[in-house]
Each structure stands twice: as structure tokens, then as C-alpha cells.
Design a protein around this nucleic acid. Sequence first.
DNA 1: ACCTGAACACCGTTCAAGT
DNA 2: ACCTGAACACCGTTCAAGT
Lengths: 251, 251
Amino acid sequence: MPAASKLRIGRPKAAENRLNRALIVETSLALIDREGIESFSVRNVARALDVFPTAVYWHIGDRNTLLSDVVTLVLADLTPTRATARWQDWIRQLLVRYRNIIRQHPNVAPLIGVQLVSNGSLDFRLVESILECLSQAGFKGQDLIDAYNVVMGGMVGFTTQEFASVPADGTEGWKKTMRRAIAAVDAKAYPRVAAHLAAMSNKAFLLRWENGVSAPLDAGFAMFADALVAGIEALAKAKRGRAKRPPGRGS
Amino acid sequence: MPAASKLRIGRPKAAENRLNRALIVETSLALIDREGIESFSVRNVARALDVFPTAVYWHIGDRNTLLSDVVTLVLADLTPTRATARWQDWIRQLLVRYRNIIRQHPNVAPLIGVQLVSNGSLDFRLVESILECLSQAGFKGQDLIDAYNVVMGGMVGFTTQEFASVPADGTEGWKKTMRRAIAAVDAKAYPRVAAHLAAMSNKAFLLRWENGVSAPLDAGFAMFADALVAGIEALAKAKRGRAKRPPGRGS
DNA sequence: ACCTGAACACCGTTCAAGT
DNA sequence: ACCTGAACACCGTTCAAGT
């Protein structure tokens, strides 16, 4: 029988508060926030709720579906409310909102984008809003779809990496190894890396042993958002200029 | 004893061909390519090599380190050879090369970027080349580091999502559910989604049940690369114009 | 409808031996 | 140095019961 666990989070057992899907999803998120996805398991969720694993299964279907629901919960308030004068601001705001959400639930980051199941969310409001925004920018037809993918890809891409998960436990040895390997860069072979070593250590992709939780890349993200918006703007302008395709290779 | 497995891949056992790290890493990659990371395990690697799991452990340290080595192997030839006249072309080429590599090993995609251990690679040549390129573009100091992060974030971000892993087995029911949910969009509430439904089904993030392997986002990726490069170019130009920061928020 | 209970076929990893 | 062998503490998931 499931022992009266110290991990217990939700539900006062004896009450008439029965097990249900929402409770399971909330408990899962709480566990992931606290312990990370590496050590997340359906069995731990069951322990936290003081029921048998099979009771959880009755409600969730399977592990992937549960994780998909967690993602849906986390991203529930992603879509910005309408009404910014410039479409550029709306897109930038979307990226910022996404990052702020992930900052509150960094351990969820690895779930989004890398598994197709997380599409279970299917927030049509988000899709519609992005399309609306990009139509306003002047995109239509295939270009509109492409621009949509650019926005979504940019939104998730940078932040996912910034908050990439740190190895669970044996992390100490690995951190030391990383720090040393970085510090020991050959200044003759890689002069620019050596020159910027202090500014890049733990503040640049590949040269980190901590993630965005303890070492956020604020400035890098700001430039990423600026660049993406400026880039989309430039392409939109080029397309308006002539009714054709831009200098880049097309579909 | 490890049965003479049908999964057997490498090493003719009786030969003097002993177990070693490189062989283990190659075998792991072959298994991941064939079966996906979802069903990857150290024990399967051992079976494929016809040894006990503990023999593998003697060489690799632990599972995460092994996966990090797999990533290193896959990305070995990522960095483009020097010598493109325009820095813009070099950056675009880098993104294209990254995507081509992932197309050859799509199941590895989820490993890159989402786990900090994969930084074990530490290819200074890549870092140095990007810095060189962006210096040529006119970035310096903190801006140079930020621009570096923009490039790395963009390189990995889009493609990782395009090749997000599809659920392993029970995939049939999930696919049907997705297809129906998408097809059943409310045209009054989401007119633009409804209008572009055919063009977006399986060709736009969130509205997919297949990944880049069977439904590549070629045009979307092309625009993403164009937008990112154009955006970086615009920021560089703005910075050259005045010795200050661009309109976007800085730090 | 909702949960218990037992069971199956797996994991990663450690530790003690063998050669 | 390199591998076998056994063991530990876990997994996700299914299936048969109970209420």
C-alpha cells in the first residue's frame, strides 16, 4: 500500500475530494518544478497523491499524455491580449511572455518543442493571433505560413536552450570539468574565444555549466528578439516592394 | 549471459577487436538512428555489442556522458570551412549545415540544446568562427557575445522543433486525435486558421502530427534563416550608425 | 466509475569477483 | 585493465479484482 509519503502534496485523503485529472496534472507540475523532469515519474505522482500508480493511470491514459497536459497548463496564459498598435511589439511581447513563463517553470522547458505530443495543447487562439499579426505585417499565402513558423520557432527555440536542464546529481564533477576545459582554451588557436573568456563563461551557449535559472542570458535574449522582429520586418518590406519572392531561396 | 542478440551491430566477438569507447558511441548512434532515443538504453547498447551492461559502464562513466559523446560525434563536421566573402553567407551556411546534419540523424535532435551536458562537445573552432564572423559584421564587446548567442540560439532552435520526436508506439490514436482536432477548428472563432487549414496541416508548428522527417518545413526554415541574418544585419548597421545601442531594450 | 493489488518486462547503476 | 555476475532500487504499463 502507498505509504503516507513525505512527498504528499495535494488532497486530504479522507475527504470526499476524489482523484481527478486536473489534480494529477497540478501535482505533476509541482513535482517537476521541485525535482526536475529527470526524476519525474508516474509512480512519484501516485505517491504524492497517496494512491496506487494504477489509480493515476485510470485518469491520464499514459505518461506522455500527462506531460502534454502539464505543458498545456503551463502555457495557458501565453497568448498576449490583443491591441498593440504595432505588430512588431505584439510579436516581441509574445517572445517575452514565453520566456517569463519558462522562468517560472524552467524544468518544463525541455518538454516543449522537443516532443510532438506537447502539441496536444492546440491553442487556436495563439495560432490565430500570430496569423492576424503577420497578415497586418503584409504576409499572405505561403509566406504567411512560413512567417508563422519563424515566429513559433523563434519563440520556443532560444528560451528552451537557455533553460536547458542541468544534469541531476553527479553534477559536481561535470561542472568542474567544464569550467576547466573552458578556462584552458588555447589562446593561439582560438584568440577571440580567449579574449572574451570572462564575458562568455556561463553567459554563452556551449560555454556554460549553469543554465538560465542561475545564469540568465537577458541581453542575448533581448538581441534575439530584436533581430527576429527586425528580420521579419525586413522580409515583409522586401515582399511589399515587389510582388515576388525575396533574395533568399524560396519554398 | 547476453544472448546472441539479433540486435547485434558491431564487433565480431571472438576477434581481438576489444570493446572501446568509440565503438560504444558509434553503436549507440546506430541504435538511436534506428529505434529513437525513447527506447534507447545502455542495456540495449550492451546487447548489441554482446557484452554485459557493466562492461559498457566501465568505458562510458554514465548514460548522460555517453549521450553527450553521441552528440559530439554527430556534430563533428558542423563548422563550415572558412572563406565566404560575406559574413551573412557564412552564418546562413552554418544554419543550413546544422539542419542537414539533423536530417541525417533526426532522433538525435532532442538531445541537443535541451540538456546542458551536451556541451561536453566544446568545439572551440565553432565558437571562434562565429565570433570571427560577427566581428567582421561590426559587433564588439558585449554586443558580440549577444550576437553569438543569437546565432547559436537560432541555429539549434528551429531545427530542434522541426524534428521534435514523435511518440513511440501508441502513436496511431494520438495522430487521429490530432488530425480531427485540427480539422474541427471553429471557423467563426478562428477564421484565419480555418482559411489556411490545408496549407498548415502538418506544415506548421502546433498543427502537426508528423515531424520534419516525413513533413519537412523547408520554406519555413529558409525564411527563418533569412530573417535571422537580415535581423542581425539590421542591428549591426544600427550600431555602426551611432556608437550607441539600438532602439530595442539593451543591457 | 473508480480504485486496489499483483505482476511483467524493463531500466541505470553499484559492488564484488574473476582473468 | 577489462569484463562477468549478481544485486538494488527503481521504472511504465497491463490485467484481474474489488467496491
